[in-house]
């Protein structure tokens, strides 16, 4: 169970996953509570052209800067577009998502190694993570955790009761930008290891799974982290065993995500049992006074 991780590339992959677990766990709680699944999905796609431009300009090392610039730009654009509900959140997000993703595809198709590049951008290269990349992920993780710590209180208030938060003097648009930037940074941190498509699973599934077993935000964050780290370990082991013992080429990132989704599905009955045991809250008695005839 431990032997495969004595190999450098396996232990590096595990380190990378654990670092990502530390930030994806807590951030996924906000993505879940704010119902930002689609925004996260959009961010993972809009980072794509940044990744490609970065790669063309500076090779593998350029990917990081390219992704960072594209992600921050998207975070700002999405915040501005959805502010004051001038455009519906979904419409604005969809337009930005598709536009940026197609730019990425056009850019990548100009290269000769088109398909192999595309695959690695979409699904990541978990097993070829370098110590330098791990260091970058660690720095980003630290930044994200500090940003979460500073913003958590305001973001929880804004998520639960936007009108109340605004009334208390919070600037809603700035809080939204704060969270969008945090999500953007997580996407940048994770994109090389697990790819643009699979990042979104790490941002959505952990909190949704944890919500099945707890009613507390802090516990959700911790459970989400433990879950990612757990399936990270198990997923790496699974793909290792599958390819060595059975000759099945199972990419490590996709086996991690498959196990994550499996964990989610296994927890659904837990939620159902909890709901049944608790029963639904008592219905509110209707008031029928003559005074309510008005309007």
């Amino acid at each position: 169970m431990i032997a495969p991780f004595e190999l450098h590339f396996m232990s590096r992959a595990l380190t990378e996953i654990v670092l990502l677990a530390l930030i994806c766990g807590p951030v996924s709680v906000f993505v879940y509570a704010r119902r930002l699944s689609f925004v996260s999905d959009a961010l993972t796609h809009t980072v794509f052209p940044g990744v490609v431009i970065g790669f063309v300009a500076g090779g593998l090392e350029g990917v990081f800067i390219g992704a960072l610039v594209a992600a921050l730009l998207t975070a700002v654009v999405l915040t501005v577009l959805t502010r004051g509900a001038r455009v519906s959140d979904d419409t604005a997000t969809a337009v930005v998502l598709t536009a940026m993703f197609s730019i990425g595809v056009v850019l990548v198709s100009r290269r000769s190694s088109y398909t192999s590049d595309l695959t690695s951008f979409l699904f990541g290269r978990l097993l070829t993570v370098t110590p330098h990349q791990i260091a970058e992920t660690a720095v980003l993780a630290a930044v994200v955790l500090v940003a979460l710590l500073i913003g958590a209180r305001a973001m929880i208030f804004r998520t639960f009761d936007p009108a109340g938060a605004a009334a208390a003097g919070y600037r809603i648009a700035w809080i939204d930008l704060w969270l969008n930037v945090i999500v953007a940074l997580v996407v940048v941190a994770a994109v090389r290891a697990v790819g643009t498509i699979l990042v979104v699973a790490l941002l959505i599934v952990p909190a949704a799974a944890a919500r099945m077993v707890t009613d507390r935000l802090a516990v959700m964050a911790v459970l989400g982290t433990v879950l990612i780290a757990g399936v990270g370990y198990a997923g790496l082991l699974l793909s290792w065993t599958a390819s060595l013992s059975y000759g099945v080429a199972l990419t490590s990132a996709s086996s991690v995500v498959l196990l994550l989704v499996a964990a989610y599905l296994l927890l659904i009955p837990v939620r159902l049992i909890r709901d049944r045991r608790r029963g639904s809250p008592p219905p509110v008695p209707e008031r029928n006074s003559a005074h309510e005839l008005v309007g």
Partner: peptide, 28 residues
Amino acid sequence: AGYVPQTDTLDADFPISVRRVVMMGRYR
């Protein structure tokens, strides 16, 4: 100035305790 919104504008499924909701009044 303090503000009390209508309760049905809030998400009843939100995982938050009564104590923490009241603590929001102290956040500022």
